[in-house]
Design a binder for these strands. Structure first.
Lengths: 340, 340
DNA sequence: GTGAAAGCGCTAACAG
DNA sequence: CTGTTAGCGCTTTCAC
């Protein structure tokens, strides 16, 4: 049973008085500094428990300039966000790394433009030691916001800067989109395929989509433009793109879809049109979201990214901003299943 | 272009000196107090902008005892959480209300038991002015945690306390589960149905499930036990329960499913077994998740809850803990579509 | 090892 | 209307 019914929360001083020592000593015990006599430590601990003392973070922050919290900001409607296993996994990585570092992750949403001010003020207000930003919507003002912050910041996914953008370059962690795409296409080539199509993401809006297309072109510099079809990273979009591709080039024998979701859509169209996979058309995806890739028919060959690791790296960059390189690109590897 | 290259962030005092006024005056301007000469306000604002001054929250908190932030804690794996449109909508309500009150919502996850300490420390550490807790997993220690906090706390959904639980009763906001169930069943009765079954949620684990079952029994005190089948709030579970019910009582002519998801499953089973809805069997759900209810075949008659309003109420209770009643039950209403 | 004293940056009476 | 004076609760030199 905890005591002290007089509303006031106990302070360091209360503990000190009751334990018959100075505030400094109590502070030392609280912070686990080694140079305190064991018996004093015991004594203080006892009083702390008795009084139910909890340090006032504001006071502590004021002098240490550390909050013990890090913000994760996502600029997407909350409801659609977690449907994305990619983000889910990334977030888990960030959280795990932060926890090991003794920091708590707090998530902020930037659903609609009205949220902007609140979030910006929160981040600038010294509530957190750093911020991991996920710029998932082309129009968000996350980079602009990051610019004004004087805490460490790191982006998940490389920002797509437009010409004329004046924001400074921020640290980021990203997968090796271009290299991964190359691996995928090279695999298709190695399989002996000669008419290799690609279904791309929205490459004018997302850096990853642009890079994955670049990787395709690296391997197939002379590919016909008719073998490239742009979609939007969704399954539905993938299905439509596949249909368009088939209409234009019925003889194609392979397709590299720039995301697993689009690959799933492509698989559906191929099935509907009676093409056998991989016999008639080989299919490779990107992301390796196991929820998806292992349940497609046939199981999807795809480019794997170590997403949790990417999340952990983001957190680490926050604590070590002087690290160079300030940004990191995480390698990918091809996971071969049955579709190619 | 901002000046002062010497690392230190500008303080109130810097602004005061440069503007030729006292700290108090600057403070007044910052906090928008009315009694300052307009020309001084202008002058101070200018210097604030010049210096890029941002108030130090820790210092402010230390004296005002207010952080401007409220935590929303969810004890469920993050990935499954947002699949639930119910939570999504509730969270939106909480956030909107908080925003109007000048507070920022920060989301904390309690995925696995390891997270417990971090979250508890964060909440107890004075980082937030209050906490909205969603106890979604029977085994979580959210109530125990709430007990130790000295900030206002409110639960989303009424806690199911077990006999012998010693935690004190916390404020909560919940829908009128029992009343809503009654409305649903009464509607079925009014339709002239005489063999009305129910598919329940996990009533030993969730308060809402127990209440919805109670509502069914209120209207049909003499219902045969064979007309009640327990499921788990999922679509799959609803489908199986419907099958079991049909096997036992092929002549049933109506079913009240305690969630829209389960109702959807029931609809599927009914269709597979050749029963026409609502002609042969009338179906009523619960929740009115429009994503679901408007796309079922036929569109689902269900019990509507104003979920966003519930979220807003939660936030309001946080700021007004002396409000009585300390907890509130939000009314429901039947939305009639085609299934009953 | 331990204590005393000096702030961290801000707000809140209280005078003027 | 504005300035002065005290702290808020904690950490951190610096002596002892």
């Amino acid at each position: 049973m905890t005591s002290h019914t007089h509303g006031r929360r106990p302070t360091l001083e209360d503990v000190a008085r009751r334990a018959g020592v100075s505030k400094s000593t109590v502070s030392r015990v609280i912070n686990g500094e080694p140079k305190v006599r064991a018996e004093v430590v015991e004594q203080v601990r006892q009083v702390v428990a008795e009084l139910g003392y909890v340090p006032n973070q504001a006071a502590r922050q004021l002098v240490t300039r550390r909050t013990g919290a890090v913000a994760v900001v996502a600029s997407q409607p909350q409801n659609r966000l977690f449907l994305d296993p990619f983000f889910d996994c990334l977030l888990r990585g960030v959280r795990r790394e932060l926890a090991e570092h003794g920091s708590q992750a707090v998530l902020l949403f930037l659903d609609d433009p009205d949220d902007y001010t609140g979030v910006a003020d929160y981040l600038a207000g010294g509530h957190v030691d750093g911020a991991a930003l996920f710029s998932l919507r082309p129009g968000d003002r996350l980079h602009e916001m990051a610019d004004r912050l004087d805490i460490p910041v790191v982006f998940g996914g490389r920002p797509l800067l437009r010409d004329g953008d004046t924001v400074r370059a921020h640290a980021y962690v990203d997968g090796d989109n271009r290299g991964g795409a190359r691996q995928a296409v090279q695999h298709l080539v190695a399989l002996g395929r000669t008419r290799i199509a690609t279904i791309t993401g929205p490459y004018d809006q997302e850096h990853s989509a642009a890079e994955r297309l670049a990787g395709y072109r690296d391997v197939l510099p002379g590919a016909e433009p008719e073998l490239t079809e742009r979609a939007d990273y969704t399954e539905q979009g993938g299905a439509q793109a596949m249909a368009a591709l088939l209409d234009r080039r019925p003889a194609l024998d392979a397709v590299f879809a720039a995301s697993d979701l689009m690959a799933t859509g492509a698989l559906r169209t191929l099935r509907e049109r009676g093409r056998r996979v991989p016999h008639d058309v080989a299919v490779v995806g990107f992301d390796d979201l196991t929820e998806i890739t292992e349940s497609t028919d046939p199981p999807l060959t795809t480019v794997h990214q170590d997403v949790e690791r990417m999340g952990r790296l983001m957190a680490r960059l926050l604590f070590d901003q002087d690290a160079r390189p300030p940004s990191v690109v995480v390698p990918t590897r091809l996971v071969r299943r049955q579709s190619a």
